[in-house]
Nucleic acid binder design. Structure first.
Length: 878
RNA sequence: GGGAGCUUAGCUCAGUUGGUUUAGAGCAUCUGCCUUACAAGCAGAGGGUCAUAGGUUCGACUCCUAUAGCUCCCACCA
């Protein structure tokens, strides 16, 4: 039997073969047509990225949804692409050049960009190749990059549009400065971490007094050099006497005012706060309010500038150390305490953020946010899980303007052109800018050479927020067929940590430029963690390489593992054993196939009764599960869906159905059954296909002769049909009986080979031959007999209030039987008591719904009957 | 400091508006099996006073209050 087929399924060879087959035949490609559209745009990974477990989870989910949609009759498209990720990519290219001995500083902008593009062409987008291993059914012909010419045009269009609407402005503000990347970053790109640091108490002499001091507490003593005030609470009696006086900044001996503001917490430190308006956002605000001087003591790279007067050129952290002995020597240091505070780090470079005053471009968010907030709150857009609605609402209601300029070269350059008169115009290109400028300032007689384009580029998210629009050319060409057909997209699958960066802004962009939501559903995946609940990270080395995992367990196995334990929004505690389970499942399928494929068919044989029953049951079970699957998909409960399919195949199809229909050893199978088995098998592969695309395609092709271009990918998903609940219930009861007989075998240690008899203590007319046939087949029972009375000659059990007994002369230990029956009796009596307690409660009988009361009465009579049977049996044994 | 959420078997989680035979699943565990598809397997079994304490109710895993512990988000008091 099937000796030529290996008992182990080997996914590696199979998977590459089918991926090529799908891709070559264009099964992933979509063009608008008369069918309803289903569209997903990939969250574009960084062009520098390599596949990690988070991508695996995210993209597996997208693939499942897209594949299912295709099979449900939708014209499904999954648009892939990459993000230019300005900071990350620029940093990578700078490092790469450094390794080649090239310093970015000696390059012109054009030279650097040439290198960057070369790097991108050579090393970028690896991740898209890796996604193919996973089986991702992306429409590769549509692959986009956020800096493709058309995508870039859309970004510029949007910038100009917003500028013309008065929603983009330029101004000097306190921004989050990344001294390593030498650029501003947005508030969302700052991550606060708790650090063990020190709180330094430093005293400032009161001007005009020899021995009067005010002591302040600070975590950043180096910024003392930029102090321009000391602030205290107006009601703080300790400091009331200094009103109107000034203090002397240590070391630099600058005279600064003492100011009073309710912002100061009297309880913190000494209740006196040093003010450095150039280097702290709160100090900055106080500075504006109290008209303070601003002294910027840092260079852009975080070293101290000339303005500091001391420690010039030294890094800010070294300066923090170095200034302490200086303060001590000058007699200003009072004490140092340990202190835990939170420090902002740059998301991209992990450098400590330095608040810095600088000229930046901002986008006004208030008006953009309103319709986007409504779209989510009124249910036009659904979040899964729903709890993220709160997070979203809170952010949207408190939204701040978006700093969109970055002091980088890699990205979309801000389309603002400066004129010799220090004015600027915003335009799609230099020519347009020149025209506008000439109209505005005819007296200047400008030429193109007088225009100086802004040096900054835009925040990467300023292009990503257009993604669902721009991949279908919806900005430049809003009436094109594609955007009309595919937009809004059907679902967005992403991680909750970019809800503000990306999700919220895409909704704003969709409402602003199309007046419509960009997607109907947002599914937030959890974070992939290790078994110890730690985030996957390079530093910890706890992140497995997905490619290696796929080689070891097959892409199907890894997909199975990722999906089985990842309900929406829940973290996924990844463990290789999950993939192992997936691989084992593949192997199970493979062996089920081997079994079926090995049978000889004899068309002359009649279909046995047990087989006919099993086939009917299996078809009903499939329908039952199909309904569950449908319901679960609606709620994006993919784990539950996969689990019910898994159980359907393993427990129902393999463990039960195939065992029933399996012909006796070396005997052929009848033709009708064989065809029905193949139909069922095929149907199961179809239902499973979105989850495990490779093995299902392989087996689907092997079960029947197929033409060269046929694929399971495009087979219609089976429709939900009505189920015969009575049949399902009766079969379930038969399975319970089967379990009981098997338990008897187990306990008495009777081999399966040894045929048994089964006595049923019920009337002959209650006999259901079709189910008895199934029981007989699976338990190796030679005869099932209906008797009126119960015997004591065997191991007995009760199922659905019918008593059964397996006659086993010589195997039965009466004492043991009694013990078992007594324990059953105790349970049944306890149960009955519970029910009676309820029923004897008048208020329950009066106030509970009729149905519930009847249910309890049924419970009562069932329990009483069970007790009667047990007692009868016990009396006979005794 | 503000907000959201979580706490159900050893682990990871279901449990739909309070009532479906005194709580379910997968994995893990235990027992017996190399039974002619699969030991990456087969058959069977054990395991939970649903975080704690109150309350509402005829009835609470489910609703309310308090407490404890955990997670995440926002704010960023030097």
């Amino acid at each position: 039997m099937s000796a030529e087929i290996n008992t182990k399924y080997d996914p590696v060879a199979v998977e590459d073969k089918w991926y090529d087959f799908w891709n070559k035949n264009g099964f992933f490609h979509s063009e608008p047509d008369s069918r309803p559209a289903y569209s997903i745009v990939i969250p574009p990974p960084n062009v520098t990225g390599v596949l990690h477990m988070g991508h695996m989870l995210n993209n597996t989910i997208q693939d499942v949804l897209v594949r299912r949609a295709r099979m449900k009759g939708f014209n499904a498209v999954w648009v892939p692409g990459t993000d230019h990720a300005s900071i990350a990519t620029e940093a990578k290219v700078v490092n790469y050049l450094k390794e080649q001995g090239i310093d970015k500083k000696v390059l012109t902008r054009e030279e650097f960009l040439k290198h960057a593009w070369e790097w991108k062409e050579k090393y970028g987008g690896i991740i898209l190749k890796q996604l193919r291993k996973l089986g991702a059914s992306c429409d590769w012909e549509r692959t986009k990059f956020t800096m493709d010419p058309d995508m870039s045009e859309a970004v510029i269009d949007v910038f100009v549009d917003l500028y013309n609407k008065g929603k983009i402005y330029r101004g000097v503000r306190m921004v989050n400065w990344d001294p390593k990347a030498l650029t501003a970053v947005s508030d969302e790109e700052v991550i606060y971490k708790e650090l063990q640091s020190k709180l330094y108490y430093v005293r400032y002499r009161i001007e005009g007094e020899d021995n009067e001091y005010i002591t302040i507490a600070t975590t950043r003593p180096e910024t003392i050099l930029g102090d321009t005030a000391i602030c205290m609470h107006p009601d703080d009696e300790r400091y009331a006497k200094y009103k109107g006086k000034r203090a002397i900044v240590p070391l630099v001996n600058r005279s600064i005012p003492l100011i009073y503001d309710e912002y100061v917490e009297r309880e913190f430190g000494t209740g006196a706060l040093k003010i450095t308006p150039a280097h702290d956002i709160n100090d900055y605000n106080l500075g504006i309010k109290h008209h303070l001087e601003t002294i910027n003591i840092f260079n852009d790279n975080g070293t101290l500038s000339e303005k500091a007067q001391f420690l010039v050129g030294m890094d800010r952290f070294e300066a923090r150390e170095a200034i302490i002995p200086m303060l001590e020597k000058a007699g200003n240091l009072v004490k140092i305490e340990d202190y835990v505070n939170k420090v902002g780090f740059s998301e991209r470079t992990n450098e400590v953020i330095e608040p810095k005053l600088s000229m930046q471009w901002f986008c006004k968010m208030g008006e953009l946010a309103k319709p986007a907030l409504d779209a989510v709150m009124n249910g036009d857009i659904n979040f899964y899980p729903e709890k993220f609605k709160n997070t979203y609402a809170h952010w949207m209601e408190n939204i701040k303007d978006w700093c969109i300029s970055r002091q980088l070269w890699w990205g979309h350059r801000i389309p603002a052109y400066y004129l010799p008169n220090r004015e600027f115009v915003v335009a799609h290109n230099a020519d347009e800018a020149l025209n506008i400028a000439r109209q505005k300032y005819p007296e200047l007689s400008l030429t193109i050479n007088d225009l100086q384009q802004d040096e900054d580029v835009m925040d990467t998210w300023f292009s990503s927020w257009l993604w669902p629009l721009s991949v279908f050319d919806g900005i430049r060409n809003p009436d094109n067929e594609e955007i009309k057909y595919y937009y809004p997209t059907s679902a967005l699958i992403t991680a909750p940590d970019i809800i503000f960066f990306w999700v919220a802004r895409m909704i704003m962009a969709g409402m602003e430029w199309r007046g419509r939501i960009p997607f109907k559903d947002v599914y937030f995946t959890g974070t992939v963690r290790d078994k110890l609940h730690r985030k996957m990270s390079k530093q910890l080395g706890n992140s497995p390489d997905p490619i290696m995992l796929m080689e070891k367990y097959g892409a199907d196995g890894v997909r199975f593992g990722m999906l089985l334990s990842s309900p929406a929004g829940n973290d996924l505690l990844f463990d290789e054993s999950l993939c192992e389970q997936g691989r084992n499942f593949s192997n199970k399928l493979w062996n089920a196939f081997r079994l079926v494929k090995g049978w000889e068919i004899d068309a002359t044989i009649e279909q046995p009764l047990h087989t006919a029953t099993a086939v009917k049951w299996m078809q009903n079970r499939i329908n039952e599960v199909l309904a569950e699957v449908e319901e679960n998909f609606k709620r994006y409960r993919l784990s539950e869906t996969l689990m019910s399919i898994y159980k359907l195949i393993w427990d129902d199809f393999c463990s039960c159905f195939l065992e029933v229909v399996k012909p006796a050893y070396q005997k052929p199978i009848d033709g009708k059954t064989y065809k029905e088995i193949v139909d069922v098998f095929e149907k199961l592969m179809t239902i499973l296909h979105p989850f495990m695309p490779f093995i299902t395609e392989e087996l689907w092709h092997s079960l029947r002769e197929r033409s060269e271009k046929e694929t399971i990918m495009l087979v219609a998903m089976p429709e939900i049909a009505d189920t015969d609940q009575k049949l399902l219930d009766e079969f379930a009861n038969a399975r319970k009986v089967i379990e009981q007989v098997r338990r008897v075998r187990n306990e008495k240690n009777i081999a399966q080979k040894h045929a048994l008899r089964l006595n049923v203590y019920a009337d002959q007319e209650s006999c259901k031959p079709e189910f008895d046939a199934v029981i007989a087949k699976l338990c190796n029972i030679e005869n099932i007999e209906y008797k009126g009375n119960c015997d004591v000659d065997g191991a007995s059990f009760i199922e659905n209030n019918v008593q059964y007994s397996v006659p086993l002369t010589g195997f039965v230990d009466a004492a043991e039987e009694i013990k078992k029956l007594e324990s059953d009796l105790k349970y049944a009596e306890g149960f009955l008591q519970n029910v009676l307690k309820k029923l004897s409660n008048e208020r329950f009988v009066n106030s509970a719904p009729q149905q519930v009361v009847e249910m309890e009465r049924k419970k009562q009579s069932d329990a009483e009957e069970k007790i009667r049977i047990i007692k009868e049996q016990l009396s006979k044994l005794k």
